[in-house]
Design a binder for these strands. Structure first.
Lengths: 238, 238
DNA sequence: CGAGGGTTTGAAGTGCATCAAATAGTGTGG
DNA sequence: CCACACTATTTGATGCACTTCAAACCCTCG
């Protein structure tokens, strides 16, 4: 799998070559292994990040010590860019959970481009709106879906929705992490996945999941969601 | 209490007079009583709304019949404007829950201004970013706060944070609705409010709540949240 | 004053969390 | 290539928080 480039990211697709060139000149690519903390909630922010490979966990911690996983990003996605709206303070922490290459880029260029190029500002708005939808859906799911349905929904987003025949899905990272991403305990995840299997007849072998058709999942999961199924546009929101 | 004007809304504060004049020319003010549905999720959208008085509930419904209250807005706030990022389809439903006046305004003007005036696009970005923060916090609260803490947090947002002495708060709408807004059942709300009283020593008389100092609440509530207390900027996000 | 909705209380059930321990899986050094 | 150490995952037992169903109470408004 070839590594993604900045221009392939939704936000930068329509950017001018000169801007890309400019921001690239100040890019820093780094390899990180699992566990590397890139920045912490409250840190002064000067750079945002573009993922070449691997996975990065976005999270926050409460004074009581609970960790909340906000999102988990992978190749082609950016994060940390929202700091430009937060007085250059990162609003969350970021940690590498699957080793890979991450490119850091200056926020100042981003801000300047946004302020001087209305097309770019509109692209940012579109991205932000997409993320807003995604979060809306997230909030909804937390109150309408049970653990098994949340897992099912997560699996649906990993699958190709145009696929009508049998489908194979591979979990992209640890089950423990999927559990955290879905706001449940690892034990609950394990039991809920078994429940999902019983309800829908999917086959589970470790991190590999297989089913005859997506409809098995859709029928069980999507009754608890206000968006009709191919809700894929939410997938890549960042 | 005087009715708010469009220019007082964060989004329109820095707008040109000519734009305000233009959009005002196509404004329609209407009085609605409790229960009036302004639009439904999926409707074609041509107008967005500005609340002069009363309260409006924003919600969605799942195929299984569960209703999720996304937010509840009041005087000075706008809603329905996000449809411009959703192919002119309202992404949620809106219903008046406390009678009042609502002004509807054309989305086309908003879109045009956004596309032609970079300053306005940046203001929209700032608003959107603020809402994003608010939703982030919402998701976090759903997984870290228990029912009593969520109610306490809701009360804190109704209070004046600069107040150091005794504080009086009046619930803005039905307890049943507050419960829905916080994602819990009315019965749970009732019991959790009693629990909050026992834990913090606040006084409750119907919809009126009183306490010697906000610190009583803060101490109990904010240990389960990653933002430090005067998290007021989230209050008005829409 | 009475009807109707909002609110509270009680009793029982469900789902998820927690604690504990067994099992499976993975990577490492020898 | 194997055994060990460590982590991830599963399973069991139990507890707690919130929901659900039912019924009483209260408050307001015509």
């Amino acid at each position: 799998m070839a590594e993604p480039t900045l221009q392939q990211n939704t936000l930068f697709q329509r950017c001018s070559d000169s801007f890309i060139k400019e921001i690239r000149a100040r890019a820093q690519k780094q390899h990180h292994s699992k566990g590397k903390v890139l920045f912490v909630h409250g840190d002064q922010a000067e750079r945002f990040y573009f993922i070449k490979s691997g996975w990065v966990k976005i999270f926050r911690e409460t004074p009581a010590g609970t960790q909340v996983v906000v999102d988990i990003f992978s190749a082609g996605q950016i994060f940390g860019e929202t700091a430009i709206f937060e007085d250059s303070i990162y609003p969350y922490s970021a940690e590498v959970v699957e080793k890979g290459d991450v490119v850091s880029l200056p926020l100042s260029n981003l801000k300047l481009e946004m302020e001087s190029n209305n097309k770019f500002a509109l692209d940012m708005l579109a991205c932000m709106a997409r993320y807003r939808r995604k979060q809306d859906t997230e909030i909804e799911h937390r109150s309408t879906q049970n653990a098994a349905q949340r897992i099912g929904c997560f699996l649906l987003h990993l699958a190709d929705p145009s696929e009508t025949g049998s489908v194979k899905i591979h979990l992209p990272y640890d089950k423990t992490l999927v559990a955290a991403r879905l706001g449940m305990q690892p034990e609950t995840f394990s039991r809920a996945l078994a429940k999902l299997r019983d309800k829908t007849g999917i086959h589970i072998k470790g991190a590999d999941i297989e089913m005859d058709s997506l409809n098995q999942l859709i029928g069980y999961v999507c009754v608890a969601c206000s968006s009709e199924f191919p809700c894929k546009d939410l997938k890549a929101a960042q």
